[in-house]
Design a binder for these strands. Sequence first.
RNA 1: GCCCCCAUCGUCUAGAGGCCUAGGACGCCACCCUUUCAAGGUGGAGAUCAGGGGUUCGAAUCCCCUUGGGGGCACCA
Length: 521
Amino acid sequence: MRAGSGLANPGVADSPGDGPAVRVRIAPSPTGPLHIGTARTALFNYLFARRTGGTFILRLEDTDLERSTPAYEKDILEGLRWLGLGWDEGPGLPGELDRGPYGPYRQMERLARYASISAGLLADDKAYYCYCTAAELDAERKRLEAARLAPRYSGRCAHLSAAERAAFEAEGRRPAIRFRIEPGSVVFDDLVRGRVQIDASALGGDLVIVRAGGTPLYHFCVVVDDAAMKISHVIRGEDHLSNTPKHILLFRALGEAEPRFAHLPLILNPDRTKMSKRKSQTAVDDYIGEGFIREGMVNYLALLGWSTGSEEEILGIDEIAARFSLEHIQKGGAVFDRERLEWLNGQWIRRLSPTELVDRLRPFLQEEADGARIDRLPADSELELLMPLVQERLPVLGAIGDLVDFLFSEHIDLDPAQLVPKRWDRATALDGLGYARVTIGEVAQADFEPDQLEAPLRALAEARGWKAGDLFMTIRVAVTGRTATPPLFQTLVALGRERVLGRLDSAIVLLAAGAREGGQE
RNA sequence: GCCCCCAUCGUCUAGAGGCCUAGGACGCCACCCUUUCAAGGUGGAGAUCAGGGGUUCGAAUCCCCUUGGGGGCACCA
């Protein structure tokens, strides 16, 4: 038994009580980048393990040789780590060589085990060799489809004689191995949905568990491994609900105890179909690339299909783990709402310390530099001063460029039209910039502070009968090239006296040139 | 086609028979704050709890049916 978790959580109804220790797993297949749905499933497993004092295991289901790649494997591991979902057993652990008491945790390294177990099933006649070719099976499926019948294997290799098998072998056919689905009804108590009953006749006939090529298939591996790794709770997406009876039948055939099952509601596209790459942004990497932070992502994902049962919602992963319970999992699917994710992300960005925020922003600034949108990479000390100006303006870290690029590049793009506030005409803007140039020029380098700038500029506006906001806007555009920026006076200080004056001069020149060409106004 | 699951504001959800003339959050709309943009504050619109039958003194909550939606049915995972 592992850590005395039962003692720590006497009231957890989901826990198996005095039963076996809680062991849960996330079993991604490295056939694509880490998917939002996988991340959410991993998170729920992680939370359940933490809540119950159980063990969280990572296992790679890499038996699809066609599509699995080391690059995807790396992406998935890094993504899970990025989210803060550390696993207790599995590949890539600091301890080296992926082990743990039940390894290896990569299915392609467990082939011997699958082979011996499938041999056992064959010996017990719980499985048999099937010589049907892909083309034959395909034709059979099409025939059923045309007759508007459910696709299902006929079972024509279920009782071959030795002579028939020999004949197929002589033809050069290589057999797959099929598991016999015996008639009957399979019932299980899903921890989220309650009692589920499915008749074996609806399972599509005898199931291929080993390919003709010899590699094992998912439904088989998942059961062999869950049994071998002593998984106590299988927490996974609802898309596996209908497959569960197959797994249960396999557990029984293997003489292994069945784990408890908990099927999570699906994450949906806006049209309420299962979230897909085609209709939604599904790669966790892409969200990281935009500047979503782990705290926001975890908080959002946890609340997709689960709730505290109260009105709390901004919660860190430990707070979530402390409140987590399978009972509060929603049954219906949940549409992925990016707006809400952004809001939550902004909430967490605002909670970061300035130094922490600088650290997280650095890669995004680097990207700005790489893209030549800024000329130089600012130093940490310089950035820290800026944090109060940008922190509450960042829904995602990737928005940093738009907020500060004018500070770190010598050239800014100016749209002359934007230099003229709505209530003003071009001549007034020219006037405003001219007077502002003089006023700011009168503020000495030593006095170049927000308050020292604001007072005289407000006085200027009043003296000329302008609304201060209009004057500030034309200055803002002149020195930043943008109409939306952090507060003006702090921005001026961040830019520095010389650059402010230089940009005002350039703006005046630009506007004056436009006035000559554009005629009267 | 067959099997399974699901169903509260546009979205995420609270709600486990009376506390609900259904609460919160995102988004949206106003107003306040304000030099812009944000942030923050206040207020508002927004759900006949999919529909219909029951059960009950009483139902969003329990049961049944209908409708709608989704998922699964590979020598993919």
